[in-house]
Each structure stands twice: as structure tokens, then as C-alpha cells.
């Protein structure tokens, strides 16, 4: 059970049961769909850019606890931030979960997102946690659909 609590931390379960920033966003300037073919999960991300700033971001879709909580916490973490900051956060988050050994140590700037560190021990769940981040990453570029494959 203790191992499981490493993965299913209270914060993660809370965001799974009560996802923040969930729903459509009429004023969004970019919509990106993310798809995990492994489990069929889909997430749609709506982003409102104001120049280089992520003014607002919301998401829709159904997924597991890890992917839903990741989406929910990501929206909170990036709202109001500059593109460059968001890109950096994306890289830090990726390192936290799936980066080379040791790279996860440098995770101070992730703040609350560090609760996902447990995912590292579950290789089959890495894609659940990173799907929405990949969607965001492509929203920062131009692509409109992403897949974890």
C-alpha cells in the first residue's frame, strides 16, 4: 500500500476527483487534442495566448487518475506564464518522470508538480502523466493533434 501511495498521492487523487480548469474555453486561441492509443484516453486542451503569455488554459476529456490529475495540475502551473517558462517547465516535468537517472533531482522549480515523481517507478504510466504536457508543448508550436506513440 505504501508504494501505491507514492503513486496515488492525496494531491493527485484530489485533482482526479475534482479536476481544476475542466471544460471548454470559448476565447481559446489554440485547441490541441492529445491521444494515448494504449488506453484510448483523449484529452483536449484549450489555450488562450496573449502574446507570449498563456492567459488561460482549460482541458476536457476522460482519462485515468494520473492523466486527469496531470492535466488539472498542469493548467494551474502554467496559467499566466510566458511561453519560454512553460517550455522549461515541460522539460523539467519530463525529466522528473522519464528523464535520465539523476535528472529528476533538479525539480525544485516544479513546485506542486513534484508529486508526480512516483510515476517514474511505473514505466507503463509515464505516458499517462506526460500526455497533456505533450499536448501543451505542441500548442506552443503549431501542431493540433499529438499522440504518445
Amino acid at each position: 500500500m505504501s508504494d501505491l501511495r507514492e503513486l496515488y498521492q492525496a494531491t493527485i487523487l484530489d485533482h482526479y476527483k475534482k479536476p481544476r480548469n475542466f471544460g471548454p474555453l470559448a476565447e481559446a486561441t489554440t485547441h490541441v487534442e492529445g491521444h494515448n492509443p494504449l488506453c484510448g484516453d483523449r484529452v483536449t486542451l484549450h489555450v488562450l495566448f496573449d502574446g507570449d503569455v498563456v492567459r488561460d488554459v482549460r482541458f476536457e476529456g476522460s482519462g485515468c487518475a494520473i492523466s486527469t490529475a496531470s492535466a488539472s495540475m498542469m493548467t494551474e502551473a502554467v496559467k499566466g506564464r510566458q511561453r519560454a517558462e512553460v517550455e522549461r517547465l515541460f522539460e523539467r516535468f519530463r525529466d522528473l518522470i522519464a528523464g535520465p537517472e539523476g535528472s529528476e533531482a533538479d525539480s525544485d522549480e516544479l513546485g506542486k508538480l513534484a508529486v508526480f515523481s512516483g510515476v517514474r517507478e511505473y514505466p507503463t504510466r509515464v505516458k499517462c502523466a506526460t500526455l497533456v504536457w505533450h499536448a501543451l508543448h505542441s500548442a506552443l508550436g503549431d501542431a493540433t493533434t499529438v499522440s504518445t506513440e
Binding site: L4, Y8, C39, G63, C64, A65, I66, T124, R125, C128
Partner: peptide, 12 residues
């Protein structure tokens, strides 16, 4: 509970 989470917990 999503099926994926069920699978992970049972696997433990």
C-alpha cells in the same frame, strides 16, 4: 476509477 488505475493497483 479508470481501468488503467485498477490495472496498476492490481499489478502491485
Amino acid at each position: 476509477v479508470h481501468a488503467h488505475d485498477v490495472g496498476t493497483i492490481l499489478d502491485q
